[in-house]
Design a protein around this nucleic acid. Structure first.
Lengths: 337, 337
DNA sequence: TTGAAAGCGCTAACAA
DNA sequence: TTGTTAGCGCTTTCAA
């Protein structure tokens, strides 16, 4: 059995209160006593009992991060940034994969709440269904009243929910990208959006549509994928011979899928069809042609969210922290032949 | 303040023990009572206090996963697999990024131990320095005697440490890969290894050297990177004009770096120089030419480790669970001109 | 500067 | 089937 505070106290010939004090360093303890306690601590290989401490102190040394799937680079970059900041604050980070399921999301938030986590970071696009919004609003309310900090990262807070929000400029970035494609001379442009009812999909699609509108380009197709490479591949197959000169995907993963499909069909990118993505994942520079896309400061945003969730940075109320999007012009978009 | 068991008990007009029983369903409770308790539970928005439960039950509902960096796909795939299995067992997964630092690794293991986690999965290559091995052996010993399951995933257990070990066949895979390159007719082969003193580096390098030996190929250069794309790029620059007809990298990320460097130098792959990687990350099929590499069942292995750490699967003692490596022949390796 | 002692919210004997 | 009660290991008043 592991040594307890009482064991250490006995060995050092002091009370448990004193041991607790030297452990936390929040009260004066004489140098000799402290020395004695430290020795006992070492001799017994003492390890604090986190749950006991959390119970007594009514707060744990853990934060939670909700993502769609950590194996997707879009999320793993964010998870990594948040975890890093948590570690700087001596906190542990629990990572939860929802696979985009609203019910899993709710389940995970409850699990985190029950662990009395310090804070929770919600990443990814949020589902826009009213039922889900209601449920999550209630859960966030519970969290808040329990003293748990909640931060949104890359998704809007539900209406009337006062939590800080790290916002990536999805709409602006998307608009800039489509503008760029139009500027290159494209008129027949297909768009492969993310899943419907997702806030990220909506923002990016809106940016795209606004750009089309402002340039009075004939409105063209919008297909929906699910942000996975496979769904991009399917879309690419479908669009291969449809006469478009450019295909803009809602994220890089789908863009890679589109390119793979076109390649399989013997269509050259960008010579025959231009392709653009969104996110600027690391792989964007390794594909040939290098992907024209939009960079989002995912790591930076996630770190900010991590700092807030860890309580290192205090942000009050429904503050929006805007993170800029940056157009990355590379080789996958050229003027149409 | 959140409702406690006592609040629920009072409201339902029963004892806390009864409430606890309906919550855990491990003792008979009459249907009517259960119903009453359930109603009280709902009315009060009751959420179990995890720390309190963990303290009383002497075990938490959390497992830990130690990785180098979740933003690296090699690790994020494993983290995701383990997390998924944890969730199936209704456990939360804490993910820790060590950035390859042995001291961080020790720090995280202690933090996990103090949270009294159910189990810990250690992934990635382990450092082979004796000091570190000693320290980690001690920590694992503490974990084990505290009832925490420890599982190695993709790295060997320290000597004389009896923990189960999901082992990827790094050496065999590497040997098969180099053999393949030799079979294609290459004689001047450079190898870009991972960081020295890392068990994964060593295993893969050994496989490579054995293949050279068995085919009596003149021993050639071995450079060391750190498994990052950037270090692969540097190595590629260094090897570009050194007269090698093939460059084998210790992992895909470095292979991508090598290819990028060669491309920048105007050297064509595979026409001028063949390049191979290891891991078969998702990006391997999107680069042009598609990367010849070795596939490791990372997800599957990590899931297995997750199941063991979660206590779903019981594996006793120092069992080695071998996971096969599979040669993936694609386009980046062709016969030399 | 130190100690005694009362919880924190839950589980699990032990009784009834 | 249900209640009583003694902890689990720590923090934190309150006294000394």
């Amino acid at each position: 059995m592991a040594a307890t505070l009482a064991d250490v106290a006995a060995r050092a010939g002091v009370s448990t209160a004193t041991v607790s004090r030297v452990l936390n360093g929040n009260y004066p303890v004489s140098a000799v006593t402290r020395e004695r306690v430290h020795r006992a601590l070492g001799e017994l290989d003492y390890v604090v009992n986190g749950p006991a401490r959390a119970l007594a102190a009514a707060t744990s040394e853990v934060i939670g991060v909700i993502v769609n799937d950590v194996s997707d680079p879009f999320f793993s970059i964010q998870a990594s940034g948040t975890q890093w900041e948590a570690a700087s604050a001596d906190l542990l980070a629990v990572i939860c994969n929802t696979a985009g399921s609203p019910s899993d999301e709710l389940k995970y938030i409850s699990m985190l709440l029950r662990q009395r986590v310090r804070g929770v970071v919600l990443t990814g696009g949020s589902r826009e269904e009213p039922e889900h919004l209601t449920a999550i609003t209630k859960l966030i309310g519970q969290a808040l009243s329990a003293g748990t900090t909640v931060v949104m990262c890359g998704r809007p807070a539900p209406p009337d929910v006062d939590v800080p929000c790290v916002a990536f400029d999805n709409e602006g970035g998307s608009r800039a990208l489509t503008r760029h494609v139009i500027t290159m001379g494209h008129k027949r442009i297909a768009y492969v959006a993310g899943p419907p009812g997702n806030s990220t999909t909506t923002a990016r699609l809106n940016g795209h549509l606004k750009a089309l509108e402002e340039q009075t380009i004939e409105k063209s197709v919008v297909l929906h994928g699910d942000f996975s490479r496979a769904s991009g591949f399917d879309a690419g197959m479908e669009l291969a011979d449809a006469g478009y000169t450019a295909i803009i995907a809602g994220n890089d993963l789908m863009a890679l899928g589109v390119i793979a499909a076109l390649r399989q069909r013997g269509i050259r990118v960008p010579d025959d069809i231009s392709v653009a993505g969104f996110d600027d994942l690391p792989a964007a520079v390794d594909v040939v042609p290098a992907l024209t896309t939009v960079r989002l400061p995912l790591d930076q945003g996630a770190r900010r969210a991590g700092r807030i969730a860890s309580g290192v940075e205090v942000v009050t109320g429904p503050t929006k922290l805007w993170m800029p999007a940056e157009l990355m012009v590379r080789e996958s978009v050229t003027p149409p032949r």
